[in-house]
């Protein structure tokens, strides 16, 4: 049985026996290579589900839709490992209860997808632990290194150039499952902390605020870069932050749901190299 067939049947069973009220997955898109999020409540519709290497969007953010989990019923959702980490973070930040989430885990490797064992987010903890070690061992990406080697002035110029294209649509925020604030700091106008205009200053302010708010929380799912209509390489910021929290605090975002947020917790052995 193909993995797609296997997951369709599993989704069908879950809906039929009432263990979940909805399955959030992927369906066919406008063109042969596009996939779109779909929401299935009728077991007969599960044959609309698609699972292949084009299923890249992190769907976890849909779980926070107003009222979706309010009735304590469970929802099944297709998640890659970064999606499972998202669930852990959202649970640790009290945005959802992981007990209501049935994971249909999969992993994309090149052109193929692989099924992942487990149904609860915690079932994937050993896998995530392994990925953490792998991430630690992974050398910095070429572009990250290149940025690192620049002088502060050059680096500033690089980001100024990239952000000059930002049109302040906030698609990055809308696409990010971690951007769950009901009222984002940039939408606050009493006082107005961040300029809403998409001029250089406003764009820098916005993108830096977002990068900081994602430090230690970003799971590098790629939703933001993918959504940005002007193709700003937001992943470069996220990647840098991920490496920073990993080396400085041994923190791998979303390792499990009991993890404390790195910027809101304190350990006696935290490095204090930057404190005078």
């Amino acid at each position: 049985m193909s993995i797609q067939q296997q997951y369709r049947s599993r989704a069908k069973e879950l809906l039929q026996d009432g263990s979940v009220k909805m399955v959030i997955g992927y369906g066919e898109g406008t063109t042969a290579t596009r996939r779109r999020p779909i929401f299935i409540t009728n077991p007969d519709d599960t044959d609309r589900l698609v699972l292949d290497a084009a299923c890249k969007t992190n769907l976890a953010g849909y779980l926070l839709r107003e009222g979706l989990l309010a009735d304590q019923k469970s929802v099944a959702i297709f998640l890659s490992p970064s999606g499972v980490r998202t669930i852990n973070i959202l649970a640790s930040e009290s945005q959802l209860s992981s007990a209501q989430v049935v994971v249909l885990g999969f992993q994309i490797q090149g052109d193929t997808v692989k099924a992942l064992e487990g149904t609860k987010a915690s079932d994937f903890s050993p896998l995530i632990a392994k990925r953490k070690e792998k991430r630690k061992a992974q050398p910095s990406h070429e572009m990250t290194r290149k940025l690192e080697q620049m002088t502060p002035a050059e680096r500033f110029a690089f980001w100024e150039g990239e952000f000059s294209r930002c049109i302040k649509c906030y698609a990055c925020r809308a696409a990010c499952p971690m951007c769950w604030c009901r009222r984002c700091v940039v939408d606050n106008n009493q006082p107005q902390w961040v300029n809403t205009s998409s001029h250089t200053l406003g764009n820098l302010e916005w993108n830096l605020v977002r990068a900081f708010h994602l430090a230690g929380r970003c799971v590098e799912c790629g939703n933001c870069s993918e959504a940005c209509p002007v193709n700003i390489p937001l992943h470069l910021l996220n990647r840098r932050m991920t490496e920073e929290v990993l080396t400085a605090f041994d923190h791998y975002p979303g390792a499990d749901e009991h993890q404390e947020p790195v910027l809101a917790s304190f350990r006696k052995d935290d490095p204090e190299t930057f404190i005078l």
Partner: peptide, 13 residues
């Protein structure tokens, strides 16, 4: 529109 994330891309572009 169930899957719309309200990102505004469609309007800005």
């Amino acid at each position: 529109s169930e899957r719309c994330i309200g990102c505004g891309t469609c309007t800005y572009l």
